[in-house]
Design a protein around this nucleic acid. Structure first.
Lengths: 131, 131
DNA sequence: GTTGAAGTCACAGCGAACTAGAAGTTCTGG
DNA sequence: CCAGAACTTCTAGTTCGCTGTGACTTCAAC
């Protein structure tokens, strides 16, 4: 199958697929006699795996590494376990950071409702505290 | 005061301050006779405001807009209220996304502990489901 | 007078994951 | 036979917030 069909099936841009090839996520595919990329079911599965891994927060280079281990016939389990662990920690950190922002933002939103458009010498009374 | 002192007081890199100037967050400061940037207390306050706003998840262009409104003598309250609202929604969305990842990752981590290093025809049994 | 820190400017690069443009070739339908 | 869609390659741009590099000038201390 050609790049357009593969892209359609996965809801990807053909450019994205070429980009994946250039960054080592996808191997170079076979070519038709006229030079078009010729993909098969294994490429489809591989890209599905890439999309799945992306939803878990894995970066392309990390996904590439898992795939490369597999391609070499090795077992990526240990690598993947490590990845899952560090990723979980990182995500927890990000959630905490966002929670702080959310908390502060809702505090500001409440204050903004109460005190109506009072701007004084400061930059923004809503954002800066000490009302 | 010169850029180095300002940077030290705010724990910023002098380059960052020049970058802020070039991107319109900071106005062009006065210059000493020898051409060095010459800052005063208002620049210090402005940069403190920038840092505060950044912790709320505001981008530099949004912060610039608030400051520009203020610089024109306008009241940024309405703009800021809108900003707070959309930012809160955006952050909520990000938190949800991260929670999904976290949930899925811990599910995978539990599974990975149980089934020991069984890799078969798939890319990665830990990441792909249907064990 | 000399050294070295700190300033000046302008341009480039990073990371991440694409996306866009240009300029050409091949395939498909009427 | 020809239009136009889909492909090819290559380079470069996007977003965001900086950071690095290089080549030069100025300032403070010794």
């Amino acid at each position: 199958m050609r790049i357009g069909e593969l892209a359609t099936q996965l809801n990807l841009n053909p450019r994205t697929i070429r980009f994946y090839e250039s960054s080592g996520v996808l191997p170079e595919p076979a070519r038709t006699s006229s030079g078009y990329r010729d993909y098969d079911g294994s490429d489809l599965e591989r890209l599905k795996f890439v999309k799945l891994a992306q939803t878990l927060g894995l970066r392309l280079d990390e996904i590439s590494e898992v795939l490369a281990l597999r391609d070499r016939g090795e077992v990526p389990c240990e690598y993947v376990k490590g990845l899952i662990g560090t990723k979980a920690i990182e995500i927890e950190r990000q959630i905490q950071e966002l929670r702080e922002m959310r908390k502060e933002l809702s505090r500001l939103a409440r204050r903004a409702e109460q005190s109506n458009d009072i701007c004084d010498e400061r930059f923004c009374r809503i954002l800066e505290g000490e009302s």
